[in-house]
């Protein structure tokens, strides 16, 4: 294939990757930004979203689109509820001590992953796309559904931006992020805000997973990869910076596709991971962020 179309395809793939990554990493970033908690179990919420989507679509068997719509509603809610419970039962009791919460979320990672193994089984499960059409470019074909994923992700991000920037809920969140104690003094129920933010963070991961699961399969071990990628994105973007996270997700998504055109993908992954570690060491506010860690 010629270079032009090659680049075009890599860009399309990069956009899909970036879309999913934006949503997943945004959840992680939100939780860190407001609560200062690094949630190592974030990838498992993503996995749960995919698994629940499979479960819902296999029960609602009328038409793939109906099942998918149901999954898009149910999976994030269920995942949010689980995250909410986890926050109340575990993280709250640790008083959000950073190191203790990391250990606790590692524990949650195993618990969620192994519960999925118990109740869902070890097999990868396909979910049928709500609709499927193939776009034939002159040089190659492409899944139309993938482009829908990009569009849906953009729509969700816009809604999220609106909620955070323009509504009272967003104001409360931002106030809590800015200074928890003062927010508390002004009558903001910081505790409930934390639990809700943790749940919402998990829901972002779940939504991303529902969107992507018709392309990939639901599998109980699928959580690790998005976790590491989200870490990379959130660090590059500056921990807690939402704008930085989105810029970084697009950058990582696109470059991941394009770099692997020129280099071995394993080498590309090594390079990007190393780069991220060095960014965290030498520029802890991230490449785009302004906030201090």
């Amino acid at each position: 294939m010629d270079f032009g179309p090659f680049l075009f395809l890599a860009t399309l793939e990069g956009l899909v990757q970036a879309a999913v990554l934006c949503l997943t990493a945004l959840g992680l970033s939100l939780v860190f930004g407001v609560m200062r908690v690094v949630n190592v179990a974030h990838g498992e919420f993503y996995m749960l979203g995919a698994v629940i989507a499979w479960w819902v679509t296999s029960i609602v068997g009328i038409h793939p689109a109906v099942g998918f719509a149901a999954a898009l509603a149910i999976a994030p809610l269920a995942v949010g509820a689980i995250a909410f419970a986890g926050e109340r039962l575990i993280l709250k009791r640790l008083d959000y001590n950073p190191e203790a919460t990391i250990v606790a979320t590692i524990g949650m990672l195993y618990v969620i992953q192994q519960m999925a193994l118990l109740f869902f089984g070890p097999d990868p499960r396909p979910v049928e796309a709500p609709f499927y059409f193939r776009i034939q470019f002159p040089w190659f074909g492409y899944s139309g559904y993938k482009l829908i994923v990009v569009a849906a992700a953009i729509a969700i991000l816009l809604i999220a931006w609106f909620v955070i920037a323009k509504t009272r809920i967003g104001l409360v969140m931002r106030a809590t992020q800015f200074d928890g104690d003062t927010a508390q003094a002004f009558g903001i129920p910081v505790n409930r805000v934390y639990a809700s933010v943790f749940a919402v963070g998990a829901m972002f991961a779940a939504v991303a997973a529902v969107l992507i699961v018709p392309i990939r399969q639901a599998h109980y071990l699928m959580g690790l990869d998005p976790l590491l990628l989200s870490f990379i994105v959130v660090i590059l973007g500056g921990l807690g910076s939402i704008r930085g996270t989105i810029v970084a997700a697009i950058l990582i998504g696109l470059s991941d596709g394009i770099i692997s055109v020129f280099f071995s993908p394993t080498l590309a992954k090594m390079a990007s991971t190393l780069l991220v570690a060095l960014v965290l060491v030498f520029r802890p506010q991230g490449l785009f962020g302004r906030e201090e860690l």
Partner: peptide, 20 residues
């Protein structure tokens, strides 16, 4: 059980909550 790593997760959580 097939989910024996579940134990590892539970142990971590219990430790960090009650027996740091």
């Amino acid at each position: 059980t097939v989910a024996y790593l579940l134990i590892a997760g539970l142990v971590l959580i219990v430790l960090v909550l009650f027996f740091q």
